[in-house]
């Protein structure tokens, strides 16, 4: 390794890699980066949000490309050792989602039945006068709600 690179530095660079479908959310805030280590190469471990996530290859490539830009060869391994849950999204990530118009997921531990899914908080008016329209949204990780206040549909990042 040419220059001394620290784990901290790597995390800083990873902040630049965004979710391919949600450009305001970094992979770190999404919580899919599960480990970073430095040996002969930089080694990144990540885990998919959903097993069938079609974006995982793109994320992998983005990580490799970004680190290459900073002069680091990186190897990315996808594993299920630390499975992702929606609780892995950071507070900063949740705030970014809301600002982007996607309701952040409620605490997953609370999600035992439909009741929790019923009253998601509308990302526009912050009220919970909402109803679940479809537990399956445009992407695997989102559900569709309707806000009775705004009279508008919105998407929620699902609790899993």
């Amino acid at each position: 390794m040419a220059e001394t690179v620290t784990i901290e530095k790597i995390y800083q660079w990873l902040e630049e890699v965004k979710d391919p479908e949600i450009p305001v959310l970094s992979l770190l805030d999404l919580g899919v980066i599960t480990n970073v280590s430095i040996g002969d190469k930089v080694k990144i471990e990540m885990t998919p949000t959903f097993v069938g996530c079609p974006a995982i290859d793109y994320m992998k490539n983005d990580i490799v490309d970004t680190l290459k830009k900073h002069g680091q060869e990186a190897e990315v391994e996808v594993t299920f050792r630390k499975p992702w849950s929606s609780d892995c999204i950071s507070e900063k990530g949740k705030a970014a989602l809301k600002k982007y118009g996607l309701a952040p997921p409620p605490d997953n531990k609370l999600f035992t039945d439909l009741e929790i899914l019923e009253n998601a908080e509308c990302p526009r008016c912050s009220q919970t006068n909402t109803e679940l329209k479809n537990p399956f949204g445009p992407t695997l990780c989102r559900a569709i709600y309707y806000c009775n206040n705004c009279k508008e549909a919105f998407e929620q990042f699902k609790p899993v």
Binding site: P54, K133, N134, G137, P138, T139, L140, I144, A153
Partner: peptide, 16 residues
Amino acid sequence: AKVQDEVGHGQLLYSA
């Protein structure tokens, strides 16, 4: 995923 996205967009747009 892509085709499902399209149908999902339809859903959002009808709602709009």
